[in-house]
Each structure stands twice: as C-alpha cells, then as structure tokens.
Design a protein around this nucleic acid. Structure first.
Lengths: 114, 114
DNA sequence: GGTTTGCTTCGTAAAATTACGATGGACGGA
DNA sequence: TCCGTCCATCGTAATTTTACGAAGCAAACC
C-alpha cells in the first residue's frame, strides 16, 4: 500500500483497525475475548483450527492495532480487549451509519442516486 | 489465507467486510459516501490522491464486500452506501462492546485478567 | 541441573493486495 | 462519423499477508 499524503491519520488509524479485524481467525479471537472477557492464549489456540504459532501471530497483529491487550503473568499469557479502542470502533461505524449533521441519513431508506 | 473449516460463515462475512474497510483510501470513500449520500465515481477520484484505475478498483472491492452499491446511468457511475450492510457492521461492533448476555461487560472498565 | 510447559519469534513459501499505465467500451456532442 | 469523456478491466511489479515448522526463552517441576 502506498503511503498517501492526502489521507488523514484518523483515516489511517481506522483502516489499521479494520485491517486487523479483516481475518476470520482474528474475528473469532475478538468475539471469544468479548464473550469470556479475558482469555489465556492456549484457550484461543484450542478454539481455532490453526497452529499455535499462527494464533500467536494473529494476537500480535491485534495487539499492534491496539484492539487487544496482553499480559504475561508467569507461565501463561492472558489477553483481553482494549475497551477504549473497541468503543471507538463502534462509534466510528455508527457515524458512518448516521454522519453527524445529516440527521438520520441511512436510517431512512436511502436509495442510490436520486 | 487458509480456508478454514472451523470458522463460521458469519465470521467469514464479518472478516470480509472489515478487510474491505482496511485501507485508508476505502475509508475515505466510505466516509465521503456517508457525507454526501451518493457520489459520482469521478468525484471520488478528485478527492483521492490516486490514479483513476486505482480508485475504480477500490470501488470494486467495496462493492464485492457489499458495502457499496453502484449504478451506471448512461455516462457516469454513481455510488452510495448499502444501508443494511453498514447497519449490520455497526451492530456487530456494538455487540463486541457489549456482547448479549454479558450485561455491560466493556461498558464498565474491564481490566485484563482479574 | 535437566525437563517439561506455554508462548513468542524466526525463517520461509505461497498467495493476496496495492498501485500504476495502457487498453477498451459505452455514451454524448460537434 | 469522429472525438472526447467517463469509467471498468487488463497486465504487471512491488509489497504485504498468511500459515507452518523450527528454534528460543522464561517459569515451573522433577
């Protein structure tokens, strides 16, 4: 991907978060973390049909995107969602639905090109 | 990416939508469509610091993910958001925030591994 | 000290993504 | 009919992603 001047850091940030979620395995990880509130890495490996090293890499991607936090307490590593980032994501998506200043735009049945 | 049996189509679908949004240029396109409600392709090219063919490809990606709808009326092509998909996306993100059955989970200040 | 356990990081091959210019096709105007 | 405009698609090169096994590393256990 080209590093584009014309695009804001806000957009870059949004894209980075979306890209991190753009993989079924990572979606599963995130939903699992949402469901269980926190999770040992090994439990996530059990849930996914992937090699342990691959899951570890996916966790790294999520961590680098700021979606997930991980702490290594002694023997095993524990992960959970980063609440602020998840909330930011939800707000961003809601804004696309109903951009501020446009009333309910998509809430109505907007049709293409009228 | 490996096609994984152990993952649901729901997860695949979510990942496909997120992946489609995982690019700054496409984020810009989507926000622009949200702001203007509908857009001629050429206007999007003007807004983005990218070649026309590249923008067209980005639009194709968004269309294939179902996020965007495009109609070609005579000379120029007009695009707009697909309201249902955008709403689905917002709902998905909100669910991660507050998974059903877990009360307000992340609404409180959840901390990692307590 | 030596092993096992749990996880991360490295190295690598295959596949996908990103961007561009060039080409092509449909429509409208001179 | 011949251009010009608008847009999609093709072909291509560079980069990124994905997944795996191998290797490394720290804590726990014998």
């Amino acid at each position: 991907m080209k590093t584009i001047d014309g695009l804001t850091t806000e957009e870059e940030r949004a894209a980075a978060i979306f890209r991190a979620l753009g993989n079924p395995a990572r979606i599963r990880i995130v939903t699992e973390l949402a469901r269980r509130n926190a999770c040992v890495a090994g439990d996530l490996v059990d849930v996914l049909p992937l090699a342990q090293s691959t899951v570890s890499q996916h966790l790294k991607v999520l961590k680098e995107a700021g979606i997930v936090r991980g702490v290594t307490n002694g023997d095993n590593a524990c992960y959970c969602l980063e609440p602020d980032v998840v909330r930011w994501l939800a707000a961003f998506c809601t804004d696309i639905c109903c951009p501020p200043g446009l009333g309910e735009s998509l809430s109505a049945n907007a049709v293409c090109c009228d």
